[in-house]
């Protein structure tokens, strides 16, 4: 299944093939997990969100009408992240998640660590301080590698709004990093 193209896997999944859908999960799970983690700042929550998103994607795969599967899946992940953040807000745990931004141990990182742990934590904390919409736009652009058109579809907003959210988000992030002397 690893060599099969996305389109075929999607078609098979729509016909009810769990194996094909699991191959799609394998292909995109790393990206989905990274985006969920950047949005939430907590690995356990990110894993839960991913599990929920994949189940939800499986249930609605028949409604997928072509286009970018990655963008479609990431929109499900971003919706699940929004729900998780709302849940947290209800529990009034938002402050805890920002201050106790729980990065996994260095075993969880796959790249060679170029940045120091302090810097990584500072960037993650700064990301979590961005307003939700700006954070999502920045994360989808940088970690989802989506273009502006795809981001506008995921966020269900016009292209101009994506531009301004990204611009504001990056300026805000830069200022936060400068204040924390990480830039």
């Amino acid at each position: 299944m690893n060599d099969v193209e996305d389109d075929k896997l999607i078609r098979l999944s729509q016909q009810g093939s769990v194996e094909a859908f699991n191959a799609l999960i394998e292909r995109y799970q790393k990206e989905a997990l990274n985006i969920a983690f950047r949005m939430l700042g907590n690995l356990l929550d990110a894993e839960d969100v991913c599990q929920v998103s994949w189940l939800s994607a499986w249930k609605s795969i028949r409604n997928f009408r072509g286009g970018s599967f990655r963008a479609w899946e990431l929109s499900i992940v971003s919706n699940a992240c929004r729900d998780e953040l709302r849940k947290r807000k209800r529990k009034r745990n938002m402050e805890t998640s920002i201050t106790d931004c729980s990065l996994p141990s260095t075993d969880g990182f796959t790249d060679d660590i170029v940045l120091t742990r302090e810097k990584v934590e500072a960037v993650q904390k700064a990301l979590l301080q961005l307003p939700y919409e700006q954070r999502l736009a920045v994360i989808l652009r940088v970690y989802g590698d989506l273009n502006y058109k795809e981001i506008s579809k995921v966020m269900k907003c016009p292209l101009g709004t994506v531009r301004s959210r990204l611009n504001r988000g990056l300026y805000y992030l830069r200022d936060l990093l400068r204040d924390g002397e990480s830039l």
């Binding site: 997990l33 990182f109 790249d111 660590i113 960037v123 940088v142 970690y143 990093l177």
Partner: peptide, 12 residues
């Protein structure tokens, strides 16, 4: 942006 891009990837 470069700083964001160099953030280590998360693995589960």
């Amino acid at each position: 942006i470069s700083l964001l891009q160099h953030m280590p990837e998360i693995r589960s």
